[in-house]
Design a protein around this nucleic acid. Sequence first.
DNA 1: GCATGATCATGC
DNA 2: GCATGATCATGC
Length: 476
Amino acid sequence: MQHWSVLESMSHLKIMEGNVKGGIDMKYETAEQLLIKAKEAHNKSFGEIDCNNRLRKSQKGVFGHVIEESHFGYEINSNSEPDFKDLGIELKVTPIKQNRNGSYSAKERLVLNIINYMEEYDKTFETSSFWKKNQKLLLMFYKWLPKVEPRELKIVQSILYEYPEEDLIIIKRDWEKLSRYINEGKAHLLTEKEFEYLSPCTKGANKNSMREQPFNVLKAKQRAYSFKSSYLTSIIREMVESEPLTYFSTKQELKQKTIEQLLEEKFEPYIGMTRDEMAAKLGVTITPKHKSFIPSLISTLLGVKGTKLDSIAEFEKANIQFKTVRLQPNGKPKESMSFVNIDFHEVAQESWEDSFLYNYFSETKFLFVVFQYDEQENLYFKGIQLWQMLEQTIETDLFAYWAEIRRVVNAGIKLEKKKRGISNNLPGSKFNGKFHVRPKGKDSNDKVSLPDGQMITKQCYWFNADYVANLLKGEE
DNA sequence: GCATGATCATGC
DNA sequence: GCATGATCATGC
């Protein structure tokens, strides 16, 4: 199946314009015509497109309506059929954002139709409302920019999307898991975390929007099918960068096992070996302090030697980042774990929902590759652990950490010259026992500016070593 | 001995 | 030149 049906050949465009530019009743006879029409919206802002003045107030979800009505001349429907019924194509208008390093990501998850527990329970994947409505998608991306009026935002790219076979295996398994929840009368216990690509996100006017479920008197939160933003990001990356992703698993393996199980199986044979034995067995050359040693170990072990970890499909699609952990004989890491450097201007302005911390830790799964030193300082491979921060930790400890950094930055960081270096009053390792702020740069002269004009040695988000030790034990 | 400030090395 | 994984080193 060809899943990228991006039409770059515009040779038909002239011929088609005559048919396509019509009144409200126009029809799009082929997917290609539809895509050509979609591309006419590129580089136009919503303000330019919106002829019914729907953007008066910036209510959510209105972007899709503007495109449907004003650009395609279709009436808005919210029934169970795809938007372009005859073609079986559902239209989705969704934001992308540019990251600090220049790459693009989905700004948010892609919300699809609401799950009616009362109707979905006796369906198969093929007869489900998800599949009926979202089998083929016309994705139109607009570029989100902070603090820019909705009417100024522009459509930048459109694609027709059909699921690659490998992804469909996982999407189907996610659907089946969801279906089991409903059939076992557990719809009220659904959470997003345990789903891989397709997950049931909450949707409603507020968190009190509840729905009946067929096999339990307890009402369940109203939820909609959604693609996790990491999955959507992988679609965007593949669209922008032409570099294809490499799968380490075969379709057969994906059918039988989750990515987590597959990873565990692949790493299992090496548990208990020293790092050098692992390297020898895999034919990876160790150069001491060679930064790329662990990544090349991982890619070799997964059978995709030479592939950058960013290009491994399963990692990209599930947004899995790896981290090496070196434990001391007592089970505690010697060092704290660092993440990205703090952009203080960003922190000072952003809301919690737009913050780097919130987004990064609610979307990222970590593959911890754990080594442990014995008393003789030999380094042994202990195993792997796939981990994601608990929602509760995000809402309490991580939020407090973010709020404190923000408070201190906005009040003006107190910098104090000490015997050794310059100290500050950003949250330290005793703040809440989990996270702290610490410098990370080339040296103490490697500085960035603060919103109040002061300069500070580059600072970084860190996990306390104790927190890492605890989460590896499953106690967060 | 831990907390915290500093810095090195590598890869892009 | 910069980001990032890794680690050092001082002083309380």
